[in-house]
């Protein structure tokens, strides 16, 4: 079997906010087509780790290697790096003054400078894919939370990223709307998208994740395939966490 390509590799990543040491010597790699799920209690550093991966937070130490190239935030063009890494936020962050289709077309138009008809065609295909073709000309304020999040996924996909990051994509949703977002994400995973997902949805982690990383107090305490990590956690802290939520 051929070795899968390494999409992200981080070594000894450290991040502090003032005196608060949020990420401590994180090592991690994400291979092509993998779905890596980060779990852990609030404040364990999951979201910060995710945000370091596309440089919305800038690391204080360590290496971040994206598709084989070490990225230096001071020297490299982070905008170029971010074009390859899509991100979906807990609170959607759709552009409220633009229609659904305009949200999806925005980055291809102004960053990739695609022509309008091409961007529109691809935008509509993506909306079709997330099941929202009929909402193309509606403003985000008219959508449910689940629909907003699916638009946000389409918007990120419009840049044709190699990697998708999900920061608690279902945490702000009413319970009955969680399913539609998760099934869109499952579909992406089936199509082979490389994904890093921060979530509290253990069912999703179990079913879709190739790897599950349990984070506690700024460290990755345990990592493994989902069956193994959920059924036979080795670390006491993982056991405590899992018994508290399951």
């Amino acid at each position: 079997m051929s070795e899968k390509r390494e999409m992200i590799k981080i070594e000894k990543l450290n991040k502090s906010f003032g005196d608060l040491h949020v990420l401590k010597d994180i090592d991690m790699e994400v291979k092509e087509n993998d779905v890596v799920v980060l779990i852990g209690a609030s404040g364990s550093g999951k979201s910060t780790l995710l945000r370091c991966l596309n440089f919305l937070e800038i690391k204080n130490g360590g290496k971040i290697i994206v598709e084989g190239k070490e990225i230096d935030p001071k020297k490299d063009n982070l905008n170029k790096v971010r074009e390859q890494i899509g991100m979906v936020f807990q609170h959607f962050n759709l552009f409220p003054h633009k229609t659904v289709l305009q949200n999806v077309m925005e980055a291809p138009l102004v960053v990739k400078r695609k022509n309008r008809s091409q961007a529109e065609k691809e935008g509509k295909e993506l909306l079709e894919k997330v099941g929202l073709a009929e909402k193309a000309d509606v403003y985000p304020s008219k959508l449910s939370g689940g629909q907003k999040q699916r638009v946000a996924i389409a918007r990120a996909l419009a840049m044709k990223p190699d990697i998708m990051l999900f920061d608690e994509p279902t945490s702000a949703l009413d319970p009955e709307l969680v399913g539609e977002v998760l099934s869109t994400m499952k579909q992406l995973a089936r199509e082979g998208m490389t994904m890093v997902v921060v979530t509290h949805e253990m069912g999703f982690a179990r079913e879709v994740g190739d790897w599950v990383f349990y984070m506690h107090d700024g460290r990755i305490v345990e990592r493994g395939e989902p069956q193994e990590l959920f059924n036979n956690p080795k670390e006491q802290r993982t056991k405590d966490f899992l018994s508290s939520i399951l």
């Binding site: 170029k80 971010r82 890494i85 936020f89 552009f95 980055a107 960053v111 918007r155 990120a156 840049m159």
Partner: peptide, 15 residues
């Protein structure tokens, strides 16, 4: 304006 708007733009590769 919510700071998530700037983050969303930046995450899409916009300057």
């Amino acid at each position: 304006i919510d700071k998530g708007q700037m983050e969303a733009g930046r995450s899409l590769g916009m300057t």
